[in-house]
Amino acid sequence: MMSEHHGHHVASAKQLWGIGIALLILTVLTVTVAGLGLPSPFDILMAMTIALTKAFLVAAFFMGLYWDTKFNSMLLIGALAFFILMVSITLLDTLYRDDVVPSF
């Protein structure tokens, strides 16, 4: 009687396994890259790039944002934006202090 689920996307098993394997490969990759010992800013940049890629795969396909309404994606992006806001404004203080931790 309630058969019209237009919005519900059913992912194929192949797709899901593909994403799972991609995530595995990226995990191996990030461990390997960390082992190389890249110079300072590049190691963290590389690690974060891989982590973000993995996060994108999980959010888009496992969590189904790719097929979902745009608003749910907006929520996720919004949350990240506010997190970045919090960090960057806090860093405006902590990076520019005369005295790192005020002494008591």
Partner: peptide, 9 residues
Amino acid sequence: IGSSLTVAM
């Protein structure tokens, strides 16, 4: 990651 996959499944 494996558990995420099984939840999706």
